[in-house]
């Protein structure tokens, strides 16, 4: 599974250095940045799908993958951010800060990355034990991070919203499922309603 999660990166390297699949095209930095950004969002959505999947299938082994998927999300987010700062803007910090502060889509994307930092830092067993209940609270930051991530994609899109819309719908389903489950757990919803929610 670890190796599978590295495949998107391997494909990028194959494109860049072996010219596979048509290489990186006329605008390679843009291509790499987009690709890494897309994979960040995909990994984030896959990570968020773990809990519902376990619940619906009863397959609890999948929970053990959740941390690794979350960390891969952060890994791709860091590469995405790194390519933007290092290759797109060539460490021109004036431009970097100007963009972070003044371009809403970049503000959203950068904030999403910032929210993921504490989650990655507290992902170890030790931190989990040390933070106890607070760990679960802290890791709810993944929800605003996901919303900001999709918003980041939405706001940089020019006219064709099909792809960001797909991400938004999937995120909506994953978050909606949690909201519904909360009602269910709190017993505020009658049994018939649970049936219609499925």
């Amino acid at each position: 599974m670890f190796v599978v999660c590295l495949l998107p990166l391997a494909v990028l390297f194959a494109r860049a250095f072996a010219g596979l699949g048509g290489g990186l095209g006329a605008n390679p930095i843009e291509f790499v940045m987009r690709d890494l950004g897309s994979w960040t969002l995909r990994f984030l959505l896959i990570t968020l799908a773990v809990s519902p999947l376990r619940h619906l299938t009863g397959w609890s082994a999948v929970m053990r993958l959740r941390r690794m998927l979350g960390l891969f999300t952060f890994f791709y987010a860091c590469l995405h951010l790194g390519v933007w700062i290092g290759m797109d803007l060539f460490f021109d910090w004036t431009l970097v800060w100007d963009d972070i502060l003044n371009r809403p889509y970049i503000t959203a994307g950068f904030t999403a990355w910032l929210l993921l930092v504490p989650l990655a830092l507290t992902s170890s067993d030790t931190m989990m034990r040390r933070l106890r209940r607070r760990w679960a609270h802290l890791h709810r930051l993944v929800y605003p991070a996901a919303i900001l991530g999709v918003l980041h994609f939405w706001w940089l899109t020019r006219a064709d919203y099909r792809e960001p819309l797909l991400y938004a719908v999937i995120l909506g389903v994953l978050l909606g499922w949690r909201v519904v489950m909360r009602w269910v757990w709190k017993g505020r919803v009658l049994l018939q309603l649970r049936g219609s929610a499925e």
């Binding site: 930095i29 797109d88 431009l95 963009d99 003044n102 371009r103």
Partner: peptide, 16 residues
Amino acid sequence: PRWSQRTERRIGELRR
């Protein structure tokens, strides 16, 4: 309104 127009990437060049 969404991005800066101060720089550009000339296709084929590395730096903006």
